[in-house]
Amino acid sequence: MATLTKKMDFGGGVTTGKRKFDLSKVLLWTMLVSFPLTLIFILLAPSDFELKYSQRIFYFHMPSNILCLLSFTIYFIGGLGYWRTRKRSWDILMITGLELGVFFALIGIVTGSIWARYAWGTFWTWDPRLTTVTIMMVVYLAGWMLRSSVEDPGRKAALTAVFGIIGFINVPLVYFSTRFFPAGLHPIVFGTNGAAVALEGFMIVTLVISIITFSQFFVYLMIQRIRLENLRDQVAGVRMALNEDEDYA
């Protein structure tokens, strides 16, 4: 994984020689098919008995939340990798996970509260899950601020790594601490609990398709983010070389 960001140039930038396989372009084409397909499935899926049409936002809500957790896990792994190796590629992985995580957390929270307005009659309640995801997002926003207020690239990476590791370890503690609040309203979708909302077969198919589509989008964004960071490095290198020339002139 450490070499992943470095070895896979993902095209772009000043590359010489023959054209390389570009995963992001492939994803762009498959998304052209899968996005309309997902929408069709979401529209065709049967309506929920109680929640009626509003239940369909769930097909956006759940994939975003899964990908948000995945992103923060990627950030954590990047942090551990940087801590052990001090390699720039781990740093790129960290920033990718951090930014995508905040993005998908935001989508999850917004879709969730729109749905909650119809289902529970309120945009917001201090339910353990809601509280946890909110605190988590605030933690990672703070991480983002930390990163933007450091100039030196090495120190930037080091501090991002430390914060990522601490923040990730903290998530289960936050979740546990929110249990001290009164019980919440959030449904448990999967599981044998009595409060579980049952999903029909067709709904599950729709959900799976939605998750696949979102994952494609996620991988696409990730590749682009890594590529952007690599390009920045190249620009910084060129700029440094130019400055050196000026000094000699």
Binding site: A142, M145, S149, S177, F180
Partner: peptide, 23 residues
């Protein structure tokens, strides 16, 4: 070691400390 040092500490500190503050 950051630019906004006095301001940044509470921003980092409060969200991480929330479990302890709640408990």
């Amino acid at each position: 070691n950051t630019r906004a040092r006095e301001v940044l500490l509470p921003v980092l500190f409060f969200p991480i400390m929330l479990p302890v503050i709640i408990a």
